[in-house]
Computed example of a mutant assay.
Amino acid sequence: MAVKLPLADELAAIFARASELLLTDETVSRALELITAAAELAVPGAAGAGVTLIDADGRKHTASASSRMVQVADERQYELGQGPCLLAWASGEPVLVSDVLHDRRWPEWACAAAELGLRSSVSAPLLAGESALGSVKIYGRPENSFDHTTVRLLELFAAQATIFLINVQARESARTLSEDLRDALAHREIIAVAKGILMARHGLDEDTAMQDLLMESRRARRSLRDVSSELVSSTQPPR
Rank of each mutant, 00 (worst) to 15 (best):
P94Q: 09
E10T: 15
A39K: 08
S98G: 05
A124M: 09
H102E: 14
L86Y: 08
P84D: 11
A39C: 09
A112L: 10
G83M: 12
A16I: 11
A88K: 05
V70D: 01
D55A: 10
T36S: 13
E130A: 07
V28H: 01
A73C: 12
I14M: 11
R30D: 04
A37E: 14
P84F: 03
S66F: 05
L101S: 11
A65R: 05
A12P: 00
G58R: 14
E75H: 14
L22N: 08
A18F: 08
V43W: 04
L11F: 11
V136E: 13
E20F: 12
A73N: 08
F15Y: 12
K137L: 09
V3M: 14
S120A: 13
A128F: 09
D9Y: 01
V100T: 14
G92M: 08
A8R: 15
T36I: 02
D25Q: 14
Y78G: 00
E79T: 09
I35E: 00
S120T: 09
A56H: 12
I54E: 05
H102C: 11
W109Q: 11
S98Y: 01
A16T: 11
R119G: 04
P84G: 12
C111S: 13
L32R: 03
S121W: 00
I35C: 06
A132W: 04
E10N: 09
D57R: 09
A42P: 09
A110L: 02
G117I: 04
L22Y: 02
I54F: 07
T24V: 04
L7I: 01
V122Y: 06
L127E: 03
L32G: 03
L96V: 10
G92P: 08
P94V: 15
L21G: 07
S64P: 10
Q82Y: 04
L32W: 12
S29H: 12
M69E: 13
L21K: 03
G81P: 13
L86A: 06
T27Y: 06
T52D: 06
L101Q: 10
G83P: 10
P44Y: 12
A37T: 11
Q77T: 04
